[in-house]
Design a protein around this nucleic acid. Structure first.
Length: 298
DNA sequence: CGTCCAGGTCTAC
DNA sequence: GGTAGACCTGGACGC
């Protein structure tokens, strides 16, 4: 992989508690037993596949339960836990995707928890991207884990826990976080997790062997505020990208890239259908290729 | 000022 | 299975 392909794998890597302080750098504040701590990723050769990614961190390894756990957590957040072998082997013979392997692409950055991925996805629905940024920023700033009194200075707040979110009523979410009608769905989601009725982390970690793509999609769509778009989007983030993301951004984007005036959802699906469990990833990479190669149609 | 809409979802037919 | 209408918010646009 090449670092910049991960750092800019998704617009959400620029939204709280993530940030991109510079070219070839990516930060995220995560929650630990000792409070929020900022993870900093960088690379001297961000576009060079295989170049080392530097990871620095203002905390102790014990905050993360030791080195093996810390490494696993970091690899997961960078989307490095997936095996892309079969996808890349298919992509090789696809003129629009053959670049992925050689460029070191295919990894999608992911939140520290599935709760974060689901909630941030809900905050992308039915609103402008600037609204998504505002709502997410407010959520993190208002409810995110903060340093406890007497603690050493920290870099910011981590994404709020389900318990923290469920601490606000629907009305408070609407008034303080400005999430509008999404407040009810968000409150419900947090409550489901807090009560133990919903094991979101387990759901996101279940492999295709335990839960088929079809069933995972169904389970995701059963979540409050999660429909076809959001389920596919969450799937991309958590490493189960079978669903094709179809929304007001991807549809016109696909049309522009293919130089067409209008395209149907069926055509888009058909284009990446052969990638099966990676169909959503395939479309995403086709759509975002010009983020890295500015000469291409966008 | 009003209307429309942006990286949709849900309910009710 | 499929499709209207409602739904928070704030920026863009027309009048």
């Amino acid at each position: 992989m090449a670092f910049r392909r991960i750092a800019e794998s998704h617009g959400l890597t620029g939204v709280a508690p993530w940030s991109r302080p510079a070219e070839g750098a990516l930060n995220v504040v995560i929650s630990t037993d000792s409070g929020p701590r900022e993870l900093r990723f960088s690379s001297d050769s961000p576009d060079l596949p295989g170049a080392p990614t530097r990871v620095s961190w203002a905390g102790e390894l014990t905050d993360l339960g030791g080195k093996p756990k810390a490494v696993a957590r970091v690899r997961r957040m960078l989307g490095l836990q997936r095996d892309l072998t079969s996808f890349l082997s298919l992509a090789e013979s696809d003129p629009d995707l053959a670049w992925v392997g050689p460029a070191g692409g295919g990894c999608i950055a992911r939140g520290d928890t599935a709760f974060e991925d689901v909630l941030r996805t809900i905050l992308t629905t039915n609103c402008s991207w600037s609204m998504t940024i505002r709502m997410t920023q407010l959520l993190v700033a208002t409810l995110g884990q903060d340093a406890r009194p007497g603690e050493q200075p920290h870099e910011g707040r981590a994404f709020p826990s389900p318990a923290s979110v469920s601490g606000l009523t629907e009305g408070e979410l609407k008034a303080k976080i400005r999430v509008g009608y999404r407040a009810g769905r968000i409150a419900q989601l947090a409550q489901l997790v807090v009560s133990g009725e919903l094991d979101l982390e387990g759901l996101a970690e279940s492999g295709p062997g335990e839960l088929t793509d079809r069933d995972l999609t169904r389970r995701l769509q059963d979540l409050p505020g999660v429909g076809p778009y959001a389920a596919a989007h969450i799937g991309l983030l958590i490493g189960r990208p079978s669903g094709v993301i179809l929304d007001s951004w991807t549809r016109p984007k696909y049309a522009r890239i293919t130089g067409r005036k209008h395209v149907t959802d069926a055509e888009i699906r058909k284009r990446v259908n052969r990638y099966g469990p990676d169909a959503g990833l395939a479309l995403w990479l086709i759509l975002t290729r010009n983020w890295f190669e500015p000469g291409l149609p966008s």
